[in-house]
């Protein structure tokens, strides 16, 4: 039996991720988990929703990512008056040699990295346009459907405070994000380091460590990482445990309205594969699933009103699910 060789060496993916993380770390202080999640989502080919108060470096992160990857970058500030055509592009009348004709002018979505800043401030109509592009990786204007560039990676941000006048993303739209990362407030030491780095005359200039082709190859390799049946079963059990009607965990039954969708399982497994590669392994481990569970599931678990009243978050629910789902049982 002759084993099929991978198209690129898996270790190259590990090296790529590590060098990317190292490069980002030159600009981003702390936020290692956020950076790791971002890299995982990028290599997995998913989109990411960042939630955090303003000023925590979300935009800096996306911009730094664009610089490090030699990819085209676009930033869209979502406002209530932003129209779908403003992001997907529109046909404009173009006059040349006395002849007028419609000419398609691409919107900011036609970039490899798109920062959708404060996505919850746009109207649902515009949100839908973005999310459709995220899902289909194409945009349709008039009668023409145009593919978006590959890789296509959207990082949307939203502010958990100042919700007045915003349009919270509906559950179905949230499900389209691969990960939802919470941007934590930095520690005191990190704050001081941020101040030191950003209040001088010179900012670090990031060097590109990969290009679009390398990212696409890495995405392909990540999908080849094998997952054992019992590990896959564990992932399935985690998803099942998020459903109040099918779980044995009391707090899930009490506080959860809807559990994670099958897309949540896909995310969990794919993110686990990427994390395994980043850890220098060629198989998915239970730890990989545990590590990505919060980012993959927190926006796919919809809580009851009682949860809000009791200040129970989806992260707490995920913690409990991880704690009570027996790995040894899955191992048989």
């Amino acid at each position: 039996m002759i084993a099929e060789e991978p198209r690129i060496d898996p270790t190259r993916v590990t090296e790529l991720a590590q060098s990317l993380e190292a490069e980002l770390a030159r600009l981003i202080v702390g936020q290692k988990e956020l950076v790791r999640d971002t890299v995982i989502a990028l290599i997995a080919g998913g989109h990411m929703l960042l939630e955090g108060v303003p000023g925590l470096g979300k935009t800096v992160l996306v911009r730094a990512l664009g610089q490090s990857l030699r990819l085209s970058f676009a930033r869209i500030q979502f406002t209530p008056d932003l129209m779908p055509a403003d992001i997907v592009g529109t046909n404009v009348i173009h006059e040349e040699k006395g002849r007028r004709e419609f000419h398609y002018q691409a919107g900011p979505l036609f970039a490899n990295l798109v920062l959708a800043d404060e996505i919850n401030r746009a109207t649902p109509k515009t949100q839908s346009a973005l999310l459709e592009a995220m899902q289909e990786r194409t945009v349709t204007v008039g009668t023409q459907t145009r593919p978006l560039p590959v890789p296509f990676f959207v990082l949307a941000t939203q502010n958990p405070i100042e919700l007045e006048g915003t349009y919270p993303l509906p559950e179905a739209q949230l499900d389209r994000f691969f990960f939802k990362a919470l941007v934590p407030f930095p520690s005191e030491a990190e704050l001081l380091e941020i101040a030191r780095r950003t209040t001088g005359n010179s900012l670090p200039k990031l060097a590109p460590v990969a290009d679009a082709e390398a990212i696409l190859a890495a995405q392909e390799v990540a999908r080849e990482v094998p997952i054992a049946e019992h590990v896959l079963a564990y992932a399935g059990r985690l998803i099942i445990s998020t459903h109040p009607a099918r779980t044995e965990i009391d707090r899930v039954r009490k506080y959860v309205r809807y559990g994670a969708s099958p897309r949540g399982l896909q995310t969990l497994v794919l993110a686990g594969k990427v994390r395994a590669l980043l850890e220098g392994r060629y198989n998915v481990a239970f730890d990989d699933l545990d590590a990505v569970a919060h980012a993959a599931l927190r926006h796919r678990i919809f809580m009851q009103f009682e949860a809000e009243a009791d200040e129970v978050t989806s992260d707490q629910i995920i913690d409990e699910i991880l704690e009570k789902t027996d790995k040894a049982k899955a191992a048989g």
């Binding site: 002759i2 084993a3 099929e4 198209r7 094998p226 997952i227 590990v231 198989n283 998915v284």
Partner: peptide, 14 residues
């Protein structure tokens, strides 16, 4: 366990 489960396969990662 993963290697044992895939001992008969010849995928690119095996």
């Amino acid at each position: 366990s993963t290697a044992w489960e895939r001992r008969g396969l010849a995928g690119p990662m095996d």
